[in-house]
């Protein structure tokens, strides 16, 4: 663990991997909820770091962090969200090619994986989900799409993501969900928050049009 000052009121804590970042994030939330952390504005987990922003005395926190006993994240920790998916994305064949499987097998592999939201970013409610083995990492598309539809289930690098609203994007699209990932009028606004467990469940594609039946 290395805590680097960020300006005068923040710390960036570097960790060995995403699981350690999630574990520290959970511990920070526990301590904050117990009133043992002092005032902070934001606690932001990311790929291998946790940013703690709006801290009155970052040096003191940096000195205290290594003395904490941070329990590792257990597979059972966190709420579970189930997302029904139609695995009919336009990049299914390309992903299958990268994986060395048939397009039909992609859904089974993906839906058979236990995912967890490692962190959020890119857009409100956009979660970076980990869980796929390293060999299933895929590159981003060489040319990003100018518009990715809302609900698109997509892959890039080691991550799976679901577009909470239509936006430009360079991830490989493998499916679509009707789940509402982000609704500022709802509490909570984000369906996927750091630490949430996620399962994708294949659902049949809508009645195929005759020309696409093949």
């Amino acid at each position: 663990m290395r805590a680097i000052p960020v300006g005068d009121q923040a710390l960036l804590v570097e960790l060995p991997d995403g699981d350690a970042a999630l574990a520290l994030h959970a511990e920070l939330l526990r301590r904050r909820d117990a009133g043992a952390l002092g005032p902070v504005t934001d606690i932001v987990p990311a790929a291998r770091t946790v940013l703690i922003d709006g801290v009155a005395d970052p040096a003191r926190l940096a000195a205290a962090l290594p003395t904490w006993d941070v329990p590792p994240t257990t597979p059972e920790a966190g709420d579970t969200v189930t997302l029904p998916v139609r695995y009919t994305g336009p990049d299914l064949a390309e992903v299958a090619h990268h994986w060395g499987v048939t397009p039909g097998e992609v859904a089974g592999i993906h839906a058979g994986t236990a995912f967890r939201v490692a962190f959020c970013g890119f857009a409100p409610g956009f979660g970076y989900l980990t869980g796929l083995p390293e060999r299933y990492a895929v590159p981003r598309r060489a040319t990003p799409r100018t518009r990715v539809p809302v609900g698109s289930v997509a892959l890039a690098g080691p991550y799976t993501g679901v577009y909470p609203q239509a936006s430009p994007g360079g991830w490989q699209l493998i499916g679509t969900t009707d789940a509402v990932l982000w609704d500022p009028e709802r509490a909570p606004a984000a369906l996927l928050t750091p630490g949430t467990r996620v399962r994708f469940v294949p659902e049949p594609a809508p009645e195929p049009a005759p020309e696409s039946a093949a």
Binding site: H25, T41, D42, V44, L51, G54, G121, F126, P194
Partner: peptide, 9 residues
């Protein structure tokens, strides 16, 4: 909207 950065806000 400080405090929501962990949701990408």
């Amino acid at each position: 909207r400080p405090g929501l950065a962990h949701l990408g806000v």
